[in-house]
Design a protein around this nucleic acid. Sequence first.
RNA 1: GGCGACGUGGCGAAGAGGCUUAACGCGACGGUCUGCAAAACCGUUACUCACCGGUUCGAAUCCGGUCGUCGCCU
Length: 306
Amino acid sequence: MTRPPLLVIAGATATGKTGLAIDVAERLTGEGIAAEVISADSRQVYRGLDIGTAKVSAADQRGIPHHGIDLVEPDQPFTVADFAAHADETLGAIAERGALAILVGGTGLYLRAVARGLPVGELPSDPAVRARLEAEFLAVGLEPLVERLRAVAPQRAAAMDTANPRRVVRALEMATVAGGEPPVPDPRGYDGPVAWIGLEVEPETHREWIAGRANAQFDAGLIEEAKALRERWDPALPAFSAIGYREAWAVLDGELTREAAIAEDIRRNQAFAKRQRTWFRAEPDIDWLRDDPPAGALAAARALAR
RNA sequence: GGCGACGUGGCGAAGAGGCUUAACGCGACGGUCUGCAAAACCGUUACUCACCGGUUCGAAUCCGGUCGUCGCCU
């Protein structure tokens, strides 16, 4: 078997996933079962975005090997395909070490891509074509692109959300590169034992946690971190769509008071959590740990390691 | 007690006689998702404009009264 046992920990933002993963890994290690953590978070892959993405500090990692973090500079494009490739490689190495892998994160697509084996890297792609299509969208609008997609890839056009520019551009990119209707490959699945567990928090409590974390991030120097990042990188980079940076810059520019920025940060996180809940709700096989998460997670991990 | 302003959905806020069986923003709720996913996108959310009466073919929009809020004055 080339893939190690995989424990997937899903859940919305600020729900305690990271801490739980490390606790489980530590306990397991204590029982003689090595475990490593792979973060599945689309913003923690960027170096330098530490406070704002609530990235685990080296100290908090407590000696448990961590992956999926600090993979690229903020100006480097990074997509699910890149994440899947990295996870694949990492999983291979973990298997060789005979350890268990814990995949934790709030980026549902990343979780799904690796734990269900979405052949995301096999899809046709060409950055140049994409760039051209994006420019065209900006110049001409969405309609012409949708028309073209309907002509070139009618099935895809009928199945997708044609009101979403990003999706239309990507579909057209695939159709252009593939020279017609590209086949949509089925998920390959995960080549090894997998268990999905999920963390859920009562709405009011969750709100408090989100608010508490936002305040803590600003107290910990989010504004300074954002300032340093902006001095070095283009603020328009996708990496900086991570919640908190825009708000921190607004404080720096005198557009928002620190208090208002925190409120906005909380608001965005709340909305984000909502989307995550929707995504995970549709994900089958998640064992939502409501009573005693640590115990449930540990039990699931032990069962996998057996 | 007098004078003035105001009273539109959970909040903010348009509308100032027919184009409104009431914009928009936020929130809330539901949803989409196979290369930007902390992103992008979609849907639902006031049979009703404080209340009562009147004018008018027609009123959230005009008039009168009542209640309420705020401000100023005594």
